[in-house]
Design a protein around this nucleic acid. Structure first.
Lengths: 166, 166
DNA sequence: GCAGTTGTTTTGATTAATTCAAAACAATTC
DNA sequence: GAATTGTTTTGAATTAATCAAAACAACTGC
């Protein structure tokens, strides 16, 4: 299996060495050991935010055969507790992961194709963070999910309607 | 337990006949056939909102042995498409069901014990319904989930802290 | 540079929640 | 009261995720 080498005087994979370097730095700064699967997952997640474990496994496994799906789950779990990634679980989808953490942003999900995009707070600051009646709860977070049709699906459903016109 | 019976000339199950009658009416009005499992699920869900399929199965099966878990799933699916119940899927919990539909309300979930309560809109009308940038989406719904500690869990964690003091 | 320690990954199995499909059955319609 | 349509049962399968032990690799200090 390949080793991880960040020293510059080295003719490794070659492509995107600086990229790996910074990703490695991010992982190390989080107090985690830098490993090939972790680099690969972090790179894949940077390229495709809102990916699920299986999709990440596909990408990672392609570039690093021998990586197991369980490894991806393990990497995501460690990234999660290290605060490096955030896990979101929209109804009807498997868990998705994103690197954008710490800010207060929300998600908009297409009800037809399940595409997910980030949306900033509606209000500008902590959104809706005060429920009308918190029932004594110590509220720590407010999660907003918007549901609707993405542009693509609006077009496709419109043309379908047209086609099925008498 | 006292019997409530309004349809006097009827020797049915006897217990809570008026209740069953009205529940039956609700089911029938939704265009669905009235069956024992459906009545039982609707009654159980009225008594314990935010129940999952398994919990409902437990209650239903106790009163109506022979009912299968799949029947409960089937009932909930038909109720769902008939608009009689709403399905919510908080992260980390199995799907929950509630009869409160059509109004715009949200949920507050305890991060420790997973208790779920209804909360009304933060704003009074459609809450946060306009994201900062909808990215071209045709937004149809905004779902807000508050996360925090319920009163009970606040007390329990506080006393735990106290106990573990040096 | 090299060995030890600690943490990570693989391998293989297991669980939880839900869905699918066909046959048996029951509620409304005629 | 019989036919029709839809519902429930039975049994299996699927998906997403988790658990556990052994093999392995990255960082620590020498």
């Amino acid at each position: 299996m390949t080793t991880i080498d960040s020293s510059s005087d080295h003719a490794g994979p070659g492509l995107a060495a600086a990229d790996s370097e910074s990703l490695a730095g991010i992982i190390r700064s989080a107090g985690l050991k830098v490993t090939a699967p972790r680099l690969a997952v972090l790179r894949a997640l940077t390229a495709a935010p809102h990916s699920n474990a299986d999709a990440l496994f596909g990408v990672v496994h392609a570039g690093l055969p021998g990586t197991s799906l369980q490894a991806v789950y393990g990497v995501l779990a460690s990234f999660g507790s290290a605060g490096l990634v955030r896990k979101i679980e929209p109804a009807g989808s498997p868990a998705l992961f994103e690197r954008r953490v710490g800010d207060n942003h929300h998600h908009i999900v297409c009800t037809r194709c399940h595409a997910v995009h980030d949306v900033d707070c509606a209000v500008g600051h902590a959104p809706c963070l005060e429920p009308a009646d918190a029932l004594g709860f110590d509220v720590r977070a407010a999660e907003v999910t918007y549901w609707g049709l993405c542009v693509q699906c609006q077009l496709e459903t419109a043309s379908q309607l047209e086609t099925s016109h008498p």
